[in-house]
Simulated scan of single mutants.
Amino acid sequence: MKQVKLIPAPADDLDISALLLQAISFLRQYGKLLLIVALLGLLAGFARYLKTPNLYTSSLVLQPKILSEPEQIAVINNWCTLLQKKERPVLAKQFNVAIPLLKKVESITVEELQKSYDPKNFTAFKVSVVVRDTAILRPLQKGMIYALENSEYIKDKLVSRKKILGSMTQTVQYEITRLNNLQQMVETSIQQPGNTGSRVMLNVSNISAQIADLQEKKLNYEEELSFLSAVNVLQNFYTPVHPTFPVLLKQLTLGLCGGLFLGMLVSFYLHYRRKMAN
């Protein structure tokens, strides 16, 4: 009868218990160093929090009336580029504001609120800014509106639109006057005796309805003319109470992680030098 020889299973390549003992020994040797460097990282994060100026975020919602939304967004993206390139004098001239005001602006971004590719569909877009001082938000908004309404193309379009609306208002007023006269003539004709036979009867109520429709059109034209602008402001910049940056917890976490990482590098370096010396 053949005997079966049992072959022992190979030991695991990594002995977990041995690794755990080495890790405990490593922490015993360099734990104090890691703790000290981690605390220094926390202090560095807290110091950075104290030294970093407060930054505030606010948003402005606009609706273009002359340009299409992609065109308007392209104009505002140009402001972002000028600000990133530190071309504040150029941007201050466009905004008609002082250069020191723009030195308190960290960034400008724009975002469309509704995806639309129809050039006749005027949707809205949001302009967000990050500033160091909330007191500049109102003059900054006025400067942005000024820049959007005072380019040569926009001014020419506004003048042309005002002329068109004024002409349409005058035309409607002329038609209203004409219909009023016609209505008076018809009413006078009806009141005269002996004119009920062969004459053509006009419906006075229809004339009154036409006059009412024209009056409504006239009021709409006058309203559009009074509110005519390059953009409509749907939401003004609001004044935030709490800063967006810096955040204390985030700064402490970054400081702690940085301290632990630096402590691990120093500990591994000292451990390596000790092993090489032995």
Rank of each mutant, 00 (worst) to 15 (best):
M1Y: 03
Q3M: 07
L6S: 01
A9Y: 11
A9R: 11
A9E: 11
A11F: 07
L14F: 12
D15L: 04
I16C: 08
S17N: 11
I24S: 14
L27R: 05
R28K: 14
L34S: 09
L39N: 01
G41C: 01
G41E: 06
L42R: 01
L42S: 03
Y49D: 03
L50E: 11
P53A: 07
L62P: 02
L62Q: 03
K65S: 13
S68Y: 04
P70T: 03
E71V: 11
V75G: 05
I76C: 06
T81M: 09
L82H: 04
P89D: 05
P89I: 00
K93A: 15
N96L: 13
V97R: 07
I99C: 00
P100R: 06
L102H: 07
L102V: 05
K103S: 12
S107D: 12
T109D: 14
V110N: 03
K120L: 09
N121G: 01
T123V: 12
F125I: 07
F125G: 04
V129I: 10
K142C: 01
K142S: 13
N150V: 02
N150S: 01
Y153R: 09
I154T: 07
L165C: 08
L165M: 08
S167N: 08
M168A: 12
T177M: 06
N180H: 07
N180S: 10
L182Y: 07
M185G: 03
T188Q: 15
Q192Y: 07
G194E: 05
V200D: 10
N206Y: 09
N206L: 14
N206A: 14
A209T: 10
A209E: 10
Q210I: 04
L214A: 13
E222D: 09
L225N: 12
L228S: 00
A230P: 02
V231F: 07
F237P: 04
T239I: 12
P240W: 02
K250D: 11
G255P: 00
G255I: 00
F261H: 04
L265R: 07
Y269N: 11
L270Q: 13
L270D: 06
Y272P: 04
Y272Q: 12
R273T: 06
M276Q: 15
N278W: 04
